[in-house]
Simulated assay, not measured.
Amino acid sequence: MSPADPDPFAPALPPGRARALPWASVLAGSLLTAIPIVASVPILPPFGLLMLLTWRLLARFALRPWAAAPLGFADDLVSGQPLGSAVLLWSLCFIGIELVERRMVFRDFWQDWLIASGAIVFCLAVGRVLALPVGARVDGALLAQAAATILLFPVSTRLVAWIDRKRGAA
């Protein structure tokens, strides 16, 4: 038996704790953006959104469809975005992913990455329109932030898969 094989006799997490892990990881991702980091260009990815999309695409039933609203509200409180913007945008992302899933029977990692990329660009672009005046020149930083977030999707997928394996889901 290699270290990569799961131990079938390992005790599983209690059901309440196993259900709370996806919520806690999304909240931890939102809180990660509150860490004060000095940078010349603000390209820190929205880790809460990244974790939410990864949980939705990788483990579909880990978060309920309505979970985007309270998690988005918590992200709004932490990130400083206008209150309700992440609630709206994250809920629209969940609805969009649901519509895509109804059309596609099977998906692979590349399609998940493409779906997440579209949702990330949508959330960042509409969040910019909601939060900043039209004349603000932040488009270069916004593109860099979107690119950094899209490139971090495989890392978040590995992290969510590891958390999902630890919580006892197959």
Rank of each mutant, 00 (worst) to 15 (best):
M1A: 15
P3Q: 13
A4E: 10
F9H: 07
P11Q: 06
P15G: 01
R17I: 11
R17G: 06
R19C: 01
R19V: 04
L21E: 11
L21M: 13
P22H: 03
A24W: 02
S30F: 05
L31P: 01
L32H: 05
I35S: 10
S40M: 12
S40A: 11
V41A: 14
P42L: 14
I43G: 07
P45Q: 07
G48N: 04
L49T: 03
L50T: 08
L50C: 11
L50M: 12
W55S: 00
R56S: 05
L58R: 06
A68G: 01
A68D: 01
A69R: 00
A69G: 06
P70D: 07
P70W: 02
F73Y: 09
V78D: 07
V78H: 09
V78P: 07
S79P: 10
Q81Y: 13
Q81A: 15
L83G: 02
S85D: 11
V87A: 04
L88W: 07
L89E: 02
L89V: 05
S91D: 04
L92M: 06
I97D: 00
I97W: 04
E98W: 06
E101D: 09
R103L: 15
D108M: 10
F109R: 14
Q111W: 10
W113K: 05
G118A: 04
I120V: 11
I120G: 02
I120H: 02
A136M: 13
V138T: 10
V138K: 05
G140E: 07
L142Q: 07
A146R: 01
A148P: 06
T149K: 02
S156E: 03
T157P: 04
T157M: 07
R158S: 13
W162I: 11
R167F: 14
